[in-house]
Structures are given as structure tokens and as C-alpha cells.
């Protein structure tokens, strides 16, 4: 679970890294190029959430398998 959190964090970091280096003062961080980065981050979070959920099902199943 810890690795997953790290991966998640790095992915989000990479999104913001794309946005860096813009010389316009108004366009910073996620606000660059029509704020598409916000959409990317949203979908990434949705998928990451589903992935975490799948992992939790996996974990629970492992527990049940052990008890069997």
C-alpha cells in the first residue's frame, strides 16, 4: 500500500511538473493551457481510487483465503 501511495504521489507530481516553466505570471501550476491538467489529475485520482479499492478487495480476499 505504501508503494502505491508513493506511485500516486509521483504521478501527481509529474502532472504539476509539466506545468512548470511557464513564463506567464497568470498561468502557473495546474492553470496552464486551459487547465487541462486539472482534468488529468481528476481522472488520475478516479482511477487511482478504483485501483486502491481493487487492492483492498484483494487484501480482504487474502484474509478469507487464509481463514479457509
Amino acid at each position: 500500500m505504501r508503494i502505491l501511495k508513493l506511485v500516486l504521489f509521483l504521478c501527481l507530481l509529474s502532472v504539476t511538473a509539466f506545468a512548470a516553466g511557464d513564463d506567464s505570471t497568470m498561468a502557473f501550476d495546474m492553470r496552464q493551457s486551459g487547465m487541462i491538467y486539472v482534468v488529468v489529475a481528476t481522472i488520475a485520482i478516479v482511477f487511482a481510487g478504483i485501483a486502491v479499492y481493487l487492492f483492498s478487495i484483494d487484501k480482504r480476499l487474502k484474509k478469507i483465503e487464509r481463514n479457509n
Binding site: C11, V15, V40, F47, A51
Partner: peptide, 13 residues
């Protein structure tokens, strides 16, 4: 999970 996340980020950008 990593590959799909990569494809989501890359797919948009």
C-alpha cells in the same frame, strides 16, 4: 496500475 496511470497522464498531455 502504473501503466494505466501513465497512459491517462500521457494520453491527455
Amino acid at each position: 496500475v502504473v501503466l494505466v496511470l501513465y497512459s491517462i497522464v500521457g494520453g491527455f498531455l
